[in-house]
Design a protein around this nucleic acid. Structure first.
Length: 308
DNA sequence: GTCAGATCCTTAGTGAGGAC
DNA sequence: GTCCTCACTAAGGATCTGAC
């Protein structure tokens, strides 16, 4: 702005760009100004008022967007992912067959789905709402019961069911509420959401950046790896394996603690919600692979001669 | 823009334990 | 004994990053 105080008799006091409205004081000797200066002064005053109005509008809009970002989008995104995952399995994916032949197909479908919705605020909310109101959520059940159909699985359904039951919620409102509430309040400190719930109703929280990255993963193993890093701290990862089994290698630590089955179950649920055809064995293998990799790199970094 | 190095991710393979 | 699962290592491709 061309508002030099000494050239127009204008005296401005400001308190910073984001503080209270700009105060404009006009010296009493306005009448002594030339017509040119007077018209310029009026122009500047009207311009200041206009800018203040715009600033107020932008502040209100900024606040609205901030509120949306903090309180609405995380829960909405999570619900949307769950819905899309179920929708894919419900509408277009036949029952899982034996081998991974179907997986590339699913990946392709999933990829296009991701491109449709991923991080795009202009998601068709009406369509989403219709989907949410439809029968899609009735298919949460099969996700939980899938364990029964998986011979030789990782024991999630039987071993972990008591502690962390697979999601079987069918009440849409309850599901949506549990999802959004936990995600909005978790880590909602100073207006920042630092953690989101990995899977609705699980209560397992994940670093939001890891969660976002996981939602962009193109494969179940990649998603597992990413969620792993967001749910568990590095120390836990360094000293644990998936089930707490002892190392098959005699040179290594004989027994490691198991990763928290409740958290692991939430991760499995989140992955299966997005990749319904993913094999639990593959996910588990991917998790163990990541854990081993972390330990391997740590040992190499430390140059521990015992492990070289 | 290209290249080299670092890092990430996937997968094959090995060895061991457990179920049958 | 066979088969399956799990833990682990390592190779190799993909991707990222920084220097030029």
């Amino acid at each position: 702005m061309a508002d030099s105080p000494d050239s127009s008799g204008l005296q401005r006091t400001t308190s910073g760009s984001v503080g209270p409205p700009v105060v404009v004081k006009v010296e009493s000797g306005v009448s002594s100004l030339s017509p040119t200066h007077t018209s310029e002064l009026y122009f500047l005053r009207s311009r200041v008022r206009e800018l203040e109005r715009e600033k107020a509008e932008l502040s209100a809009e900024n606040q609205r967007l901030k509120t949306m970002l903090v309180h609405e989008i995380p829960g909405l995104l999570s619900t949307m992912w769950q819905t899309l995952g179920q929708a894919n399995s419900h509408h277009s994916i036949p029952a899982p067959t034996s081998r991974s032949d179907n997986y590339p197909l699913y990946l392709h479908q999933q990829h296009s789905t991701n491109q449709d919705v991923e991080l795009r605020p202009q998601v068709n909310s009406q369509q989403l709402q219709e989907d949410l109101s439809g029968d899609i959520f009735e298919s949460w059940g099969p996700l939980g019961s899938e364990d029964e159909e998986m011979p030789g699985d990782l024991g999630l359904g039987s071993n972990m069911g008591e502690e962390a039951p697979l999601c079987s919620q069918t009440n849409m409102e309850e599901l949506r509420r549990s999802c959004s509430e936990s995600q909005c309040t978790a880590g909602n400190i100073n207006g920042h959401v630092s953690q989101v719930e990995v899977y609705p109703g699980s209560g397992v929280l994940c670093d939001i950046r890891s969660w976002q990255a996981a939602n962009q993963a193109q494969s179940p193993t990649a998603m597992a790896r990413t969620l792993l890093m967001g749910v568990f701290d590095m120390n836990t990862l360094m000293n644990s394996n998936l089930r707490g089994g002892r190392s098959r290698r005699p040179a290594f630590q004989p027994q490691r603690s198991a990763l928290d089955p409740h958290k692991i179950n939430a991760i499995f649920n989140a992955i299966l919600a997005r990749f319904p055809l993913a094999k639990k064995g593959v996910i588990g293998s991917g998790i163990n692979s990541k854990l081993s990799e972390i330990r391997f790199r740590s040992r190499r970094a430390n140059r521990d001669p015992r492990f070289l």
